[in-house]
Amino acid sequence: MRLLMLGGTEFVGRAITEGALARGWDVTVFHRGRHEPPKGVRSLHGDRTGEDGLKALADGKWDAVVDTWSGAPSAVRDTARLLDGRVARYAYISSRSVYEYPTPIGQGEEADVVDGSPDDGDVDYAEAKRGGELAAQGVFGDKSLLVRAGLILGPYENIGRLPWWLIRIAEGGRVLAPGPRDAGLQYIDVRDLAVWTLDAIEQGLSGPYNLISSPGHTTMREFLEACKQTTGSDADLVWTDPERILEAGIEPWTDLPVWLPPGEIYDTMQHTNVDKALATGLECRPVQETVADTWEWLQAIGGRAPQRPDRPAVGLPADKEAEVLEG
């Protein structure tokens, strides 16, 4: 298979690129040149937001393209139009954020989605991803695959969610652990996302797929205990009621990454129907493996996680944590 990877040097793009190389695919990576791509790829440079930014893609043919773009949908539109007739299939890594909020528990890919346009410029994340979907479908039709990923964790993470927990717990001491401790967590290991996406390309799948683990794949307790065990920490996990955390002004998901209190947002994020993806072969590794491999990667790069410049840093300030623990 000849794969064109748009991106391919960070997190999701890198995992897909490495997965394709492991299968013996011929991989071309189109990127801005800010980071080195994996060895063994053909590297093309360009900036999709700049004038003549797609010039390097003017020639060439591929069996499939994978696009992780999360900015202006018009960039997906322009790329898809340029590649029309030279690429057999277009896989767009989208997001569950395209669904209208709140999404009813148990609904799958048929749930209502937000408005979006392939011609949009700078719009919010949900509209950008929906516009990207429409851009891919508008050119490639039933040759397009929409991968609606949920929370993504694993090695190469450049958002900082799992790395923050690992680093914080490795420091030891009393750690604010948000309850309920047995609340289920849904997420997708980036490598499992890569495996499924490449399999889907080989199978010729098309249309939207929710890509995340089954509800309750792990729990908050198992997640944090895995961080403690992996780091060898003597941390004392102080389980704290959601009400007390919220009263202290601590923001779910950002101050305490991956955590959401019970309620409408939790139900929307943690009760995703993934029957369609499971029926096509989605397999998700245990949380202990995701945590251990992410810690190993963190140690290999010096213990400091990379941070995407277009995303805010996550994590709870030490003084705010201490205030709640001492209160």
Rank of each mutant, 00 (worst) to 15 (best):
G150M: 05
R14P: 13
E18S: 15
K61W: 06
D115F: 10
D275T: 15
G172F: 06
G85A: 11
D84I: 07
G71M: 04
G232Y: 03
G85Y: 11
K55Y: 04
I159F: 14
P38Y: 05
M5Q: 10
V27A: 13
V66K: 02
L211P: 01
A56R: 03
A149G: 15
E18P: 11
G46Y: 09
R2I: 02
G85S: 10
G33N: 08
G315I: 01
E110C: 07
A313R: 14
K39E: 12
D182S: 07
A111W: 00
V76D: 00
R34F: 10
A91H: 11
I167P: 00
V324D: 03
P252W: 00
P309W: 08
T290N: 04
E127L: 10
D199N: 13
V314P: 04
V98K: 01
L256V: 12
L205N: 02
R191W: 02
T218V: 12
G249Q: 06
A194M: 04
A72Q: 04
G216P: 13
R77H: 09
E283M: 15
M5V: 04
A91N: 04
R81I: 10
V139L: 05
T79Q: 14
S206N: 14
L256Q: 02
G179A: 11
A194I: 08
P208I: 04
R174W: 03
P257S: 12
I159T: 09
E225L: 14
S94K: 06
G160Q: 07
A91K: 01
P286A: 12
V258E: 00
R244T: 09
G24T: 15
F140Q: 04
K61M: 10
P286N: 14
D63S: 06
R130W: 01
F140A: 02
E51R: 13
Q299T: 14
L82I: 07
I212N: 02
E109R: 02
Q270G: 08
E18F: 13
E326M: 08
G24K: 14
P178S: 05
G24P: 14
P155F: 10
E127N: 12
E326Q: 11
V291Y: 04
S97V: 10
T197C: 08
G24A: 11
P252A: 03
P215M: 04
D241Y: 07
V190M: 01
T230S: 15
F223H: 01
R42Q: 11
S94V: 12
N273Q: 15
T9Q: 02
R130F: 04
A80S: 07
